[in-house]
């Protein structure tokens, strides 16, 4: 070793350094990097799960598994586009709701006039550390037909829906309620035409009633974590800033809008990014609570890719869905980064 003459310690470090990182590099390489490459190959084949995907007999499909999701009119595209629609509505509901709730709770907990911060912080955060499966069981019970939610709705005179058996989209319900459309006989202009395998009427459904129950669960579990992030950021804002605003006669709202919120910008960015990345990956709750039902309205790309591979044994198509989902997450994260960073 060339270095060993000048300093034995540095020479040792070359070997020791690699020895120290070897376990991590081996495990992550074998179960993170290699799998991605293997899946990339499988997504180009029609492998059915029998034997090795590298055998010579495995039919090569080229880009068929990908075009099947976008251009070929068929069940694969219809399922995939339905899952995209469902997840998009889900993200559009979950991300703003959890961010607002987290920010609101953090602002209240951070109020100097209130005592018992520790207790409330713990109470709000506790749901985030529990098992997603265990908590899904609890919500399944709460949203069951004779469950707690419908009992509460009954107190205020509302007849609760059969949550997990109800595929009606809430946008359709809202449009129907204000009399714009007749949900039982939707306008032909919307049902006769469409794009990417779904009619305009299908695209415009909004999240289904069943999906709303899952949205409620996820907002409830994730808000606590994000509240802690906002709280940490709030505690880092120097008190003098707020006092300066007070001296200048700014109202409570003005101080929040022009002093506090701008200081929270980096945290807001982090929370929105993590929320976006996380909510495009929803899987556990779907697996436990609805398996994509009713009428495919809780099908998401993550769950669809699992189902396509492990239930229908179409691994190529399942892997292709995974990669498209990967791409969606990357692109949306980059777009969001630009949108939030470019403003002063």
């Amino acid at each position: 070793m060339a270095d060993s003459k000048r300093g034995g310690i540095r020479g040792n470090e070359r070997v020791a350094g690699w020895l120290f990182v070897t376990p991590v590099v081996a495990v992550l390489g074998l179960f993170l990097v290699v799998p991605i490459l293997m899946a990339l190959w499988v997504s180009l084949t029609d492998w059915n799960g029998q034997g090795s995907p590298f055998r010579s007999g495995v039919p090569f499909a080229g880009l068929d598994n990908y075009t099947g999701l976008f251009t070929d009119d068929g069940l694969a595209r219809q399922n995939f586009m339905t899952s995209i629609r469902n997840n998009a509505y889900y993200v559009a509901a979950v991300v703003p709701l959890q961010t607002l709730l987290a920010l609101g709770l953090a602002l209240v907990v951070n109020n100097r006039l209130l005592k018992g911060k520790g207790f409330f912080r713990t109470a709000f955060y506790f749901p985030s550390v529990t098992s997603s499966v265990a908590i899904s069981v609890v919500f399944l019970f709460m949203f069951s037909n004779s469950g707690a939610i419908n009992e509460i709705l009954g107190f205020v005179g509302v007849n609760g829906p059969q949550w997990f058996a109800d595929p009606r989209g809430v946008l359709h319900l809202a449009l129907g309620a204000v009399g714009l459309v007749d949900v039982s006989a939707p306008p032909a202009a919307l049902t006769d035409h469409g794009v990417l395998g779904l009619t305009w009427w299908d695209w415009s459904s909004g999240p289904s009633v069943a999906m709303c129950a899952i949205i409620a669960l996820v907002v409830w579990t994730t808000s606590g974590t994000f509240m802690l992030m906002f709280l940490a950021a709030l505690q880092n804002i120097p008190g003098q800033l707020d006092e300066a605003g007070l001296v200048d006669g700014a109202t409570r709202w003005q101080r929040l809008r022009f002093i506090t919120l701008p200081q929270l910008r980096p945290t807001m960015f982090l929370v929105l990014t993590l929320g976006l990345i996380g909510s495009w990956q929803v899987f556990d709750q779907i697996y436990v609570m609805s398996q994509g039902n009713p009428a495919k309205t809780t099908l998401t790309p993550a769950y669809l890719s699992y189902r396509t591979a492990f239930r229908d044994f179409d691994y190529g198509s399942g892997a292709a869905i995974s990669f498209v989902l990967f791409l969606i997450i990357i692109v949306l994260t980059l777009l969001q980064r630009r949108a939030l960073r470019e403003r002063p």
């Binding site: 020791a16 993550a302 989902l325 990967f326």
Partner: peptide, 28 residues
């Protein structure tokens, strides 16, 4: 520890942290 490849290794690690877990189900 100063060892060759330390910086690229750390950069790769950060990149891997960003890989969405659900995407890895079939690959794993």
């Amino acid at each position: 520890l100063r060892f060759p490849g330390r910086r690229p290794l750390f950069a790769t690690l950060i990149g891997l942290m960003a890989v969405p877990g659900v995407v890895l189900l079939i690959p794993k």
